[in-house]
């Protein structure tokens, strides 16, 4: 059997393989190295940053649900200056592609972040989070209104020479409309999906479990929603898709590829199994090899035929 070709083109960047890790679940790249060597990944997406440092929400920030996880971290991050000064020098040395994830509360926030992060920073791309459900008056407004979404992406695109990935919120009635809007804004690729807004109530204390009341649901519980959205967007919009939402096993990853994702990204699955990315890569490889696919690219969107 000849080896399966894993190289993947995404928005003008070449990835070793089509496997990324999700923003907010993989820190700034150093936390999981004892479990999963970075050189085995196609790339990592860094924790979301904002112009100013943020302490985020109070604890408890996490609540487990059936096959899912609610989080309300609230975009805790060191802020742009500290990111550039203390984190970026280490990030550039990582043996894999690093994608920065940016969040804002206004158009100016996104512009400021995009202006500071260019190709010479060593980053591979910018993922624009217009969909964080955990901050008040936050990004989600941009992620639920097509007009604002288009404006944000256009503004970011105008400021940076890095490829721009728009990360969409699933908390909308028309995901295709949102995808079309960011395409008009000039997005080079799409990330689907961010977390679904949810909550949990402690029936003993008769209070919400999360200090923030609401949180974003991730993990296997949201996978069918994510697969559906990847499927719909693949049919309607001609942009590469980074599929995410509940990917924990290689079977999940194959499902996303078949639905139309060019790249898959692992988030909460790392918490369950810190070696999930390695096992998923091996599983995809064996799946392709056994069925005679020479390249993982052959799987992308195959279920639509």
């Amino acid at each position: 059997m000849s080896p399966v070709d894993f190289t993947t083109q995404l928005a003008g960047i070449t990835l070793r393989n089509p496997l990324l890790t999700c923003s907010g679940t993989y820190g700034f790249g150093e936390e999981y190295t004892a479990y999963c060597p970075l050189e085995s990944l196609g790339g990592i997406t860094l924790k979301g940053i904002t112009p100013l440092p943020r302490l985020g929400n109070p604890v408890p920030r996490l609540a487990e649900t059936p096959a899912g996880l609610l989080n309300a971290v609230g975009l805790e991050n060191p802020g742009l200056d500290e990111f550039v000064k203390s984190y970026l020098p280490k990030v550039r040395m990582l043996p894999t592609a690093a994608i920065a994830n940016i969040s804002g509360f206004s158009l100016e926030d996104y512009v400021q972040l995009a202006r500071a992060l260019q190709k010479d920073s060593g980053l591979a791309a910018l993922e624009v989070n217009i969909s964080c459900p955990n901050v008040k008056h936050g990004g989600m407004h941009f992620g639920t209104d097509p007009q604002s979404a288009q404006e944000v992406i256009a503004a970011v695109k105008a400021e940076t020479d890095l490829p721009v990935i728009a990360k969409l919120s699933p908390n909308v009635t028309d995901i295709v409309g949102m995808a079309r809007a960011v395409q008009l804004g000039g997005a080079d690729a799409l990330s689907l999906i961010n977390t679904l807004l949810g909550m949990q109530i402690d029936i003993h204390r008769q209070r919400p479990v999360l200090a923030n009341t609401f949180g974003g649901l991730s993990g296997p519980a949201i996978k069918p929603v994510a697969v559906r959205m990847v499927w719909q967007v693949f049919q309607a919009v001609d942009l590469p898709i980074i599929g995410m939402g509940g990917i924990t096993t290689w079977q999940d990853a194959v499902e996303f590829l078949l639905a139309g994702a060019t790249v898959v990204s692992i988030g909460t699955g790392n918490f369950v199994n810190p070696q999930a990315p390695l096992e998923i890569l091996k599983g995809i490889n064996d799946y392709c090899a056994q069925r005679g696919f020479a390249s993982v690219r052959d799987l992308v969107g195959l279920a639509h035929n």
């Binding site: 679940t25 820190g27 936390e31 604890v59 920030r61 971290v73 805790e76 790392n270 810190p274």
Partner: peptide, 14 residues
């Protein structure tokens, strides 16, 4: 504190 990743990557347990 409640934990997600247990390795410092998710900021769940601050």
């Amino acid at each position: 504190e409640r934990m997600g990743c247990a390795v410092g990557a998710c900021l769940g347990c601050v």
